[in-house]
Design a protein around this nucleic acid. Structure first.
Length: 634
DNA sequence: TTAGGGTTCG
C-alpha cells in the first residue's frame, strides 16, 4: 500500500478466503537517522536529538487524555531545551531514573513557547533512555519491540556521558538512604514497598524500607489492619527500619497500582520533623514529637512523583544487597545456616524430602470450608524443641506463634510444578514472556499452516466460543492478552522450518481468558496437531495440552513460615496442602486479585501483632522425612 | 487537547 511507510511496522487485519495467503515482509534495510544539536533547532522542523537530562517529571496525568512527561535536556552545545511528551501509554514515555540520564528522542517537533524554542513529540515518536554514568550499561530503556540502535548510537551515548561527566551534570548522590535523611529537606528515596493502606480519598500510606536505619525515630502511622495490604506486623527489628510515606492527591492513583515488594524511587519526598496531623489515624500520633514524617505532596513541582524501578537496574541490585544483608542478620537460625535455607528455597521439592521439612495444612477448625482432617484433636501439644527431638512418623500438636513468613511478595510464592518430573520452577515474569513473544515475531519466513487450520480475521470480544481454538502468530504478549479477553483458547505460535510451531515453553502455550498455562520443557514433546472437539463439551487446557504433546504444569503455592514457641523456632514449608490451607486454588491466585487478597488476609490473621499473646495450635503429623501440620486456632 | 519545571492542605 502506498500509505505504508518504509521501515515502519504496520498492523492490519486480513480477511482471507479460500487458499489465499499473505506474506508481510519486513525490510531489513536500516535507516540512518540524523541527529541535530540542541542549538540548531528550527521552528516547525521535526528532528531527532540526543541529550542529557537536567530536569524531569515522571509521566503524570494531564487534564487531557494523555499522560504528560516533562524534560529539560542539554548537549555539547550547552543549549538547554525543554521537551514535552504527550502519550496515553505510560510505557512509551521516557524511562528517566535520575538527572544525568541520557535520552534519544525521535520525531520531535521544534516549536516556540514564551520566546524560546522547545520540543514536543509528534506522530510516530519514540524515546530511549540510558544510564548517564561513564561506562554504565548500554542497554536502552525502551518499550519498543523493534528498535534501531547501532554503533553510532553507542558512540553518541558514550560521548554525551563523557561530556556530561566533565560538566558535572551527574548528581553526586541521586538518592538519599533513610540513614542519611535530614529533617526539613526534600530528597529522593530508593526503596522497597512492604505494605500500603489507603488513608482517605486524597492520601495513601506507603510503608517502605531501604534496609538502612534512620537515626531519627520515624512517624508511626497506624491504620486499620483490615485496610492494610501486606503484613500488618513485622519483627520489631524490621519495623524500626520502616518509613511511613504519605502520598497525596495525584500520586494516590499511581500508589494504588503499586504491587507489594515493588522497588520504587520517590522523587522530592519531604522529611517533616515533629508532629503533624495525619487523616484517619486511630492513635494519638500528634503527641509524638521527635519523629520524622515523609510526605509526597500533591502536584509535580520539582519533579515530585514515584517511579517503579526495574529489578535489573543497578540501584535495585544494590538495594537488594543491603536488604538481604539485614534479613540474613535477622534470620540467623542456629540449626540451619542461611545458605542451607537458601538452597532449600531454591531446590525443587522432591529433594526437600532429604531434610527434615515441614508442610502445613490448615485445620478444619480454622475454616469450615476445609475438609475434615484425619488426625485427632485430643493429642497433647508438644513444644518445638520436643518436636525437633522426636522421631519421624508421629502425629503432633504444637502451640506456636507464626513469627514471619516468606515470600513477602505473593507472586513469588506461586510456582509451576511438573507432576511428571516432579520439579518446581518460578512463574516466568511478564518481561521475559514479552521478550519471547517479541523474539518469535521477529523470525519470519515462508510458512505453510497445516491443512486443518483456517487462516482469517478475528474480531475482539467474541463470546461463547468455548470450542474454538486460535493459533496466533506474530502478536505481542499484550495483543495476545487482549485477544484472550474475548476468546477462550489462544495458542501462540511461530513459524519454524516452514511450519507452525509452539513458542519456547518458557512462554505460556495457552491463554484462556486471564489464565495462562505453561508446559514442562523437560517432559513435553510439543507438536502442532489438530485438537478435536468431538466428544467434549469444552476444549480445556488438559485437552489442548494433550493434543499438543505438552506436559501441563500445575500452579502450586510454596511458602516458608517461621514458627516460634517459648522453646524454639521452626522453619516450615507450606506446599502440598497450601491450597487447602488457604482455601484458594493456586491457579486462581495466578489470575485473580481476590484470591491473592484472600491469602494475604489468612497469613496476616495468623501472624499475631507485635506484643500480642495470641497463639495458634498446630497439629503435626510426621512421616519419613516430612512433618505435616494441621492447623487450628485456639 | 493536555503542559509550558520552580515545593505544602496534609
Amino acid at each position: 500500500s502506498p500509505t505504508f511507510r518504509k521501515d515502519k511496522l504496520h498492523r492490519c487485519n486480513l480477511l482471507l478466503s479460500g487458499d489465499a495467503c499473505v506474506y508481510v515482509s519486513r525490510s531489513t534495510k536500516t535507516t540512518k537517522y540524523t541527529y541535530v544539536r540542541l542549538n540548531d533547532l528550527k521552528v516547525g522542523s521535526v528532528v531527532n536529538v540526543y541529550g542529557v537530562v537536567v530536569f524531569f517529571k515522571q509521566p503524570f496525568r494531564s487534564r487531557g487524555t494523555d499522560f504528560c512527561s516533562s524534560l529539560k535536556i542539554t548537549d555539547q552545545s550547552n543549549q538547554k531545551i525543554s521537551c514535552t511528551i504527550f502519550c496515553d501509554k505510560v510505557d512509551s514515555h521516557p524511562k528517566i531514573f535520575q538527572i544525568g540520564d541520557i535520552v534519544r528522542m525521535h520525531r520531535f517537533k521544534a516549536q516556540f513557547f514564551k520566546d524560546t524554542i522547545m520540543l514536543v513529540n509528534t506522530f510516530g515518536f519514540s524515546v530511549m533512555a540510558f544510564d548517564g554514568a561513564v561506562g554504565g550499561a548500554m542497554e536502552p530503556r525502551t518499550s519498543s519491540r523493534t528498535y534501531h540502535f547501532d554503533q553510532d548510537d553507542q558512540r553518541a551515548v558514550e560521548e554525551l556521558r563523557l561530556w556530561a561527566a566533565n560538566q558535572g551534570l551527574l548528581p553526586l548522590v541521586p538518592t538519599t538512604p533513610l540513614s542519611a535523611v535530614q529533617p526539613k529537606t526534600y530528597f529522593n528515596l530508593t526503596c522497597q514497598l512492604l505494605a500500603k493502606a489507603p488513608v482517605d480519598s486524597t492520601c495513601t500510606l506507603l510503608r517502605v524500607w531501604d534496609g538502612t536505619r534512620c537515626p531519627r525515630s520515624l512517624l508511626k502511622v497506624i491504620v486499620e489492619p483490615n485496610v492494610t495490604e501486606g503484613p500488618s506486623s513485622l519483627s520489631s527489628a524490621k519495623e524500626n527500619l520502616i518509613a511511613n510515606v504519605l502520598v497525596y492527591d495525584n500520586h494516590v492513583e499511581f500508589a494504588r497500582q503499586l504491587k507489594l515488594g515493588a522497588f520504587l524511587r520517590i522523587y522530592n519526598l519531604r522529611a517533616i520533623p515533629g508532629s503533624s496531623k495525619v487523616p484517619g489515624l486511630t492513635s494519638s500520633q500528634s503527641e509524638e514529637v521527635d519523629h520524622l514524617a515523609f510526605h509526597l505532596h500533591g502536584g509535580t513541582a520539582y519533579g515530585r512523583g514515584i517511579r517503579l524501578l526495574p529489578e535489573n537496574s543497578p540501584d535495585v541490585q544494590e538495594l537488594k544487597r543491603v536488604i538481604e544483608a539485614f534479613e540474613e542478620d535477622e534470620d540467623k537460625v542456629p540449626e540451619l545456616n542461611d545458605s542451607e535455607m537458601l538452597d532449600v528455597w531454591c531446590t525443587p521439592p522432591e529433594s526437600l524430602g532429604m531434610r527434615t521439612d515441614f508442610v502445613l495444612m490448615r485445620d478444619s477448625n480454622v475454616c469450615c470450608l476445609c475438609s475434615e482432617r484425619s488426625c485427632s484433636h485430643n493429642i497433647q501439644p508438644v513444644t518445638l524443641s520436643e518436636l525437633k527431638r522426636s522421631e519421624p512418623g508421629r502425629d503432633h500438636h504444637v502451640r506456636v506463634q507464626l513469627r514471619s513468613y516468606e515470600p513477602l511478595r505473593l507472586h513469588q510464592a506461586l510456582k509451576l510444578y511438573c507432576s511428571k518430573c516432579e520439579t518446581m520452577q518460578d512463574v516466568p515474569d511478564d518481561e521475559l514472556v514479552a521478550e519471547l513473544f517479541s523474539e518469535a515475531s521477529r523470525y519470519s519466513g515462508p510458512c505453510t499452516p497445516p491443512q486443518w487450520a483456517l487462516s482469517g480475521q478475528v474480531s475482539l470480544m467474541s463470546e461463547g466460543k468455548s470450542k474454538e481454538l486460535i493459533f496466533l502468530m506474530g502478536a505481542t504478549l499484550e495483543e495476545t492478552c487482549r485477544l484472550a479477553d474475548g476468546y477462550q483458547n489462544i495458542v501462540p505460535v511461530r513459524p519454524s522450518g516452514g511450519h507452525l510451531a509452539l513458542l519456547d515453553l518458557s512462554a505460556p502455550f495457552l491463554f484462556r481468558g486471564r489464565k495462562r498455562y505453561y508446559g514442562c520443557k523437560q517432559c513435553s514433546e510439543a507438536a502442532l496437531t489438530e485438537v478435536s472437539a468431538e466428544g467434549v463439551q469444552v476444549i480445556d487446557e488438559k485437552v489442548i495440552a494433550e493434543a499438543l504433546g505438552v506436559q501441563l504444569l500445575q500452579f502450586v503455592l510454596l511458602m516458608k513460615l517461621k514458627l516460634q514457641d517459648a522453646t524454639d523456632t521452626l522453619d516450615v514449608f507450606l506446599w502440598r496442602d497450601a491450597e487447602l490451607f488457604f482455601n484458594v486454588s493456586a491457579e486462581d491466585v495466578a489470575a485473580d486479585q481476590e484470591a491473592q487478597s484472600s491469602i494475604c488476609h489468612t497469613v496476616e490473621s495468623l501472624c499475631p501483632a507485635e506484643g500480642s499473646t495470641g497463639m495458634s495450635v498446630f497439629n503435626t503429623h510426621t512421616h519419613t522425612h516430612t512433618i505435616i501440620f494441621s492447623v487450628g486456632v485456639c
